[in-house]
Simulated assay, not measured.
Amino acid sequence: MDSSVHCRLDELLAERKLTLTELSKRVDVSIVNLSVLKNDRAKAIRFSTLTAICRALDCSIGDLLVLRPQT
């Protein structure tokens, strides 16, 4: 079953003109793990990782993670 949570990491990076590599360095999370998150394949995320990403992108959790409409 697919998750109904969508990660907007790709859009936020584009808006800020940042690469996944740069974000990886800023938050000390591997590119592979960020890619899993970015592509909506993550099953879980640590609060510390979520906090670090939001601080690095100057966004709120609700900017990063959104619920997909039910179909």
Rank of each mutant, 00 (worst) to 15 (best):
M1D: 03
M1A: 09
D2T: 13
D2H: 12
S3T: 14
S3V: 05
S4V: 08
S4H: 07
V5P: 02
V5T: 14
H6N: 09
H6F: 08
H6E: 04
H6D: 03
C7Y: 00
R8I: 04
R8E: 04
D10V: 06
D10A: 08
E11L: 12
E11N: 05
E11R: 03
E11Q: 08
L12C: 01
L13E: 05
L13Q: 04
L13V: 06
A14N: 12
E15D: 14
E15I: 08
K17S: 14
K17A: 14
L18H: 05
L18T: 04
L18W: 06
T19C: 04
T19Y: 06
T21N: 12
T21K: 09
T21F: 07
T21V: 12
T21H: 09
E22R: 06
L23K: 01
L23W: 02
L23H: 03
L23D: 01
L23Y: 03
S24N: 12
S24Y: 06
K25W: 10
K25Y: 14
K25E: 15
R26G: 04
R26Y: 07
R26F: 07
R26N: 10
R26E: 09
R26Q: 15
V27T: 02
V27Q: 00
V27L: 03
V27G: 00
D28W: 03
D28L: 07
D28I: 05
V29F: 06
S30T: 12
S30N: 08
I31W: 03
I31K: 09
V32G: 02
N33W: 04
N33M: 05
L34T: 01
L34Q: 01
L34I: 04
S35Y: 04
S35D: 06
V36D: 01
L37S: 02
L37K: 01
K38I: 08
D40G: 08
D40F: 02
A42C: 14
A42W: 03
A42V: 10
A42G: 09
A42Y: 06
A42K: 07
A42D: 06
K43L: 12
A44R: 14
A44D: 10
A44N: 13
A44T: 08
A44L: 09
A44C: 11
I45S: 03
I45L: 15
I45C: 07
R46W: 05
R46L: 11
F47I: 15
F47Y: 13
S48W: 04
S48H: 08
S48L: 10
S48G: 09
L50Q: 01
L50P: 00
T51M: 11
T51S: 14
T51C: 11
T51E: 10
A52C: 07
A52W: 01
I53W: 01
I53K: 00
I53S: 00
C54G: 03
R55C: 11
R55I: 14
A56I: 05
A56G: 07
L57F: 02
D58L: 10
D58C: 13
C59F: 04
S60L: 11
I61Y: 09
G62P: 02
G62S: 13
G62E: 11
D63E: 02
L64D: 00
L64P: 00
L65S: 01
L65V: 05
V66S: 09
V66A: 10
V66D: 04
V66I: 15
V66Q: 13
L67E: 13
L67S: 12
R68F: 08
R68S: 13
R68W: 07
P69S: 13
P69D: 13
P69M: 10
Q70W: 12
T71H: 13
T71R: 13
T71W: 12
T71G: 10
